[in-house]
Design a protein around this nucleic acid. Structure first.
Lengths: 117, 117
DNA sequence: CTGGATCCGATTTGATACTG
DNA sequence: CAGTATCAAATCGGATCCAG
C-alpha cells in the first residue's frame, strides 16, 4: 500500500484515510444523530453526552469542510443553525452502523454494560 | 446512550469503545496483515510503511493485551517472535474490511490516488 | 532479532472568557 | 443561540540508547 497526500497530510493506507475523515471520538456520534433528521447546534450539544463546546464546533466544522454535513444558518435572532447530512454523509451511515454494532458486540464480550440512559 | 467504564476509562458510546480497541493509525493495518498468515515482528515492521519501532511495539502490546492477537516467543537466538490473530481478532477482520473499502471509495471521491506499488 | 525506557517537541483537548 | 479566541494541561509520537 503506497503513500498519498490529501490536504498536505501523508496517508499510508485507506483505513487511515477513512478514520481521519469520520474517526475520532465524536464524528460518528454526530453523523449517527443526523441519520434521520436535521438538528440544531444545541440539540446536538444536549444529545451527545460530555462533548465540550469546543470539540463539537471543531468536529462540525471539519465534517462540513469535508462535505459530510450541511450547515444552514437562518438570519434570525437569536441565531438558528441547522445541521444535516449530505449525500456523502449519508453514504457514511452504513459504515458507522457496522462499527457501532461491532462496538456493542465487543462490549458484550468484554462484559461492559451500557447501563441505563 | 449511557456511559460505561472499561479499564478505568469512561466511554460514552459503542463507536468510541470499538475505535479505542482497533482504531488509530496502525491497529487495523496490523490486523489486516495477520488476516491469513502468521508474521514475525520484523516482517510486520518491513511490511507496514513508516511505522516506527515504538508505535509498532506499543500497538502490538495493546492488541495482545485486549485479546486480538497471539504472541508466540521461540526460545532461540536470535529471538524469534510470531504474531497471529486470535478468535477475537478474526472477528474484527470483516469490520476492518468495511472501513478499508469505504476508505478506498472516499479516496476515489476526493480524487486521491493510491499510487503504484 | 525483538523489545523496553527515556527525553522532548508537537498536537490535542478542556476550561474559560468574550462576541453579535 | 451559536460561535471564536486564548491559555494551560494532557496526550502522543519520533528519535535515540541500552539490553538479552
Amino acid at each position: 500500500m503506497p503513500d498519498f497526500i490529501h490536504k498536505s497530510k501523508v496517508y499510508y493506507n485507506p483505513v487511515e484515510f477513512a478514520l481521519d475523515r469520520i474517526g475520532g471520538a465524536w464524528k460518528m456520534p454526530i453523523l449517527w444523530r443526523l441519520k434521520d433528521r436535521v438538528m440544531r447546534y444545541n440539540e446536538l450539544k444536549k444529545d451527545i453526552p460530555h462533548v465540550t463546546h469546543k470539540m463539537l464546533t471543531t468536529q462540525l466544522r471539519q465534517l462540513e469542510e469535508e462535505g459530510f454535513i450541511n450547515r444552514t444558518v437562518y438570519p434570525v435572532v437569536p441565531p438558528k443553525v441547522e445541521y444535516s447530512l449530505t449525500e456523502r454523509g449519508l453514504r457514511a451511515i452504513p459504515v458507522v452502523e457496522v462499527i457501532r454494532n461491532y462496538g456493542l458486540e465487543l462490549m458484550a464480550e468484554f462484559g461492559v454494560e451500557p447501563g441505563k440512559k
